[in-house]
Design a protein around this nucleic acid. Structure first.
Lengths: 214, 214
DNA sequence: CTTGCCGCTGAACAGATGTTCAGCGTAGAG
DNA sequence: CTCTACGCTGAACATCTGTTCAGCGGCAAG
């Protein structure tokens, strides 16, 4: 790594990594400058010395997360691998970036907004392509369909700690990720409900029987 | 309202409501005791007087949210209305409760854990019933299927601010909720992909083509 | 060796936050 | 009326947070 040429740059990068991990895990407000400094084995003053202020640090985090995810997307699309959210989990550093983005989306940060807009755009594009290829059914409401598809994957990421509790291991565990992909493919291909029965159920009360969730 | 018999109880309830709304919107850490007090037009000391500590207030919030949602579930299942997450949005007070639960799920609070477990359980039960009625297809991995269904709905709730930006109005807006239910029903009934094409796509690279999300 | 630069630190400060406490006002009981 | 109980408050305190600043220590240039 040529980035280790100057020790100052190296520790700056380390602080950034620690900050992204901590914020992804605990949120922005909970992650204090002193906690970051302690986890990175430096003084709190140094963190501010490098980034000017906590806001500056957050901006730097946003920038780096966007760069990391951008690179991950490029690598995935080039290798022809699974370009869904699941594909990210295997990429180095992208796991933390994903958690950070999730937090950022809820705190209304700029990185979260940017990424949500981009995901919507890419999903809509993908659906259009699939439809023109005859691989996807037409939807009367493509925006809502794209939102639901994104929400399903992002929901799993946002609920990550609870999902880990549920299965006993992290969703990034390869075996678990495969189960995820398999079931989602099944859902997207065949749905959950038998169409005849679904039609009968849908008529009387606009009721989505897939989940009496609450 | 018989709850106004004692003025102390009334303001206590008001503080609780304000706290739940604020926490659902901004998160636990961001919502300070003084902010809650100001929003409820009381002193910060009174908040602590009623609940002992901020933790006590949070516990009271959990308790109330669980009670509200419990009542909402009962009302929905009794009236035979839409018992999905969408049905909640129309119920008084349940909207704030839902946002609070979303926050609690990410902060690892007990209310969030309890509700996630309950939603999983109810969804699995619902799927079993539908399957034995012949209304739902069998799944090799019911737990994962239930998770995906829950994640899809909870994802929409957790991404609420971004969704509001996307559509220009809140997801609780009846017109938007109807679009949501309609598209989700379509997805659950028919899937997104044409099965023949999906099979062809699935073979080479385990790729979920519904979203090139990233 | 001296000088100056630079990564880095500890101490300090102002503001915010959770929490405590003595006491105010009022309303109902005696 | 007196007195007590209770909802409620303002002021104070210790702690934590972001931020500033003077200065240490090593290292490369002169």
């Amino acid at each position: 790594m040529c980035s280790a040429s100057h020790p100052g740059i190296a520790t700056r990068d380390r602080v950034l990594g620690v900050a992204i991990t901590a914020i992804g895990r605990d949120g922005v407000k909970e992650t204090t400058v002193r906690k970051i400094a302690h986890a990175a084995d430096v003084s709190a003053a140094l963190v501010l010395h490098h980034f000017g202020s906590k806001q500056g640090l957050l901006d730097a985090c946003d920038e780096r997360v966007l760069a990391v995810t951008e690179a991950a997307v490029a690598a995935l699309t080039e290798s022809g691998g699974n370009a869904g959210v699941q594909g990210f989990l295997a990429i180095d550093g992208a796991t933390e970036a994903l958690a950070y983005i999730g937090r950022s989306m809820q705190d209304g940060g700029p990185a979260g907004r940017t990424w949500f807009a981009r995901m919507m755009e890419m999903t809509l594009d993908g659906l259009r392509t699939l439809e023109s290829d005859g691989a996807a059914r037409h939807s009367e409401d493509p925006t809502m369909r794209a939102l639901l598809l994104i929400a399903m994957d992002l929901g799993v990421i946002l609920l990550r700690p609870l999902v880990t509790d549920l299965f006993g291991r992290d969703i990034a565990d390869p075996a678990l990720t495969e189960r995820w992909v398999r079931e989602e493919m099944d859902l997207l291909s065949n749905g959950v409900l038998r169409t005849s029965a679904a039609a009968a159920l849908a008529e009387p009360a606009t009721r989505p029987p897939g989940k009496d969730s609450t």
